[in-house]
Design a binder for these strands. Structure first.
Lengths: 106, 106
DNA sequence: TAGATTGTTGCACTGAGTAGTCAACATATC
DNA sequence: GATATGTTGACTACTCAGTGCAACAATCTA
């Protein structure tokens, strides 16, 4: 699942056209088209501000969208900065070990 | 401990002047001075590239410097993007719970 | 005590990179 | 055949990391 795919899903499910949504988030509709079709050359993704507005307008999960855009959401960022000792170690864990940690949380 | 303080420590301990270090990392020495004294207006921090070069030149811990600059180091970022499910949950943990998770890793 | 070396700070500026635009076209719908 | 929709490539505008200078203060050293 890419950011573009998810945005298109959300937009369609809300019955919005590109032009309609674009005007609500104050960008050109052609730009949204490119995002949905990932026609933006490598690294030229939408800004966090735009993703925020899209999340609001589409009533979607902002963190999910940010992560799909390969950006670290602010709440997670703050935690990483606050506890670098913890997150440096956690980031080194394999998927398997990470799964075990998650399981132990329940 | 701020980025500026840490950089100054490292630079002094290597016996380098601002001008010397600046020329090695290819920036103006006044810019380094501003970084060390956090005289850069909010949000205008040094680039990750510069921090990288400083880490190399001062033989410091790049991740430590990035974290002090409140930037998420690339290895951690990659892990967060790869396992958003895990890191969204981990980021919500209190310091206490995070400590318990860490302890359980040994 | 003068000259070299180092660091501080304000301010106006620049250049690169990237977020976003615009015109033109295609396709579908009614 | 108008009206609404989406696609694409070339272009532009803005942000911001970093510059460069000027004027100054504090050491050090010969």
């Amino acid at each position: 699942m890419t950011l573009g795919q998810r945005l298109r899903e959300l937009r369609k499910s809300r019955g919005l056209s590109l032009r309609e949504l674009a005007s609500r988030v104050s960008v050109g509709f052609t730009y949204l088209s490119k995002i949905e079709n990932h026609k933006l050359e490598e690294g030229h993704g939408p800004s966090e501000k735009l993703i925020h507005m899209l999340a609001v307008e589409l009533d979607g999960d902002e963190e999910e969208l940010l992560l799909l855009a390969e950006k670290v959401p602010e709440p997670i960022r703050r935690r990483v900065i606050a506890r670098p000792d913890a997150f440096r170690r956690l980031a080194e864990l394999s998927d398997r070990k990470l799964d075990r940690v998650l399981a132990s949380l329940d």
